[in-house]
């Protein structure tokens, strides 16, 4: 995980578990176009946008054993599923944060065809669209009652 060393609040073990956890909930796509969530600087995102979540995150990481990062992806998925079953609300909060950081990332946005950053002020342009078939709609005549 890039920049993980900036995470002064986490132990080395927690950082490794975090990296594995991120890779479990959002692994890289098979075709390689989408990165694993472990490649996104999740801790920088938390510091900047969701500092309140940091304490809860540490609690979540401590639910997993030290060997979690060494397990296969499918085994990690099983363990994360157990966690989601035992504390669905905490899991939902974690996923929300992971998704939020992930889908703000420039590389991810480029890969899914979304422009990174706030929509304002650039906005988007969309085509006016073809209205020609409305002639047939109007030809069917008045459709309201009085």
């Amino acid at each position: 995980m890039e920049n993980a060393t900036t995470a002064s609040a986490c132990t080395e073990g927690q950082l490794q578990r975090l990296s594995a956890l991120l890779d479990t909930v959002l692994p890289a796509s098979e075709d390689g176009t989408l990165p694993s969530a472990r490649e996104i600087d999740f801790l920088a995102y938390l510091r900047e946008q969701a500092p309140d979540f940091q304490a809860e995150l540490i609690g979540i990481l401590d639910r997993f054993d030290d060997n979690f990062p060494d397990l296969t992806l499918s085994r990690r998925v099983d363990l994360v599923r157990d966690f989601s079953g035992s504390d669905a609300a905490a899991f939902r909060r974690l996923l929300f944060r992971v998704y939020d950081s992930y889908y703000q990332n420039d590389r991810v946005c480029a890969a899914i065809g979304a422009r990174p950053g706030p929509p304002f002020p650039n906005g988007h342009s969309i085509p006016a669209g073809d209205l020609s078939s409305l002639e047939a709609v109007t030809a069917r005549g008045k459709g309201y009652r009085r």
């Binding site: 692994p27 994360v80 996923l95 929300f96 998704y99 889908y103 703000q104 979304a114």
Partner: peptide, 20 residues
């Protein structure tokens, strides 16, 4: 909506899973 809304609502409805 946008990417986050797609992912979150897809998760809530069971349509878009987390994981692989």
């Amino acid at each position: 909506g946008g990417p986050l809304a797609t992912a979150i609502r897809g998760l809530a409805s069971g349509d878009i899973p987390w994981g692989p």
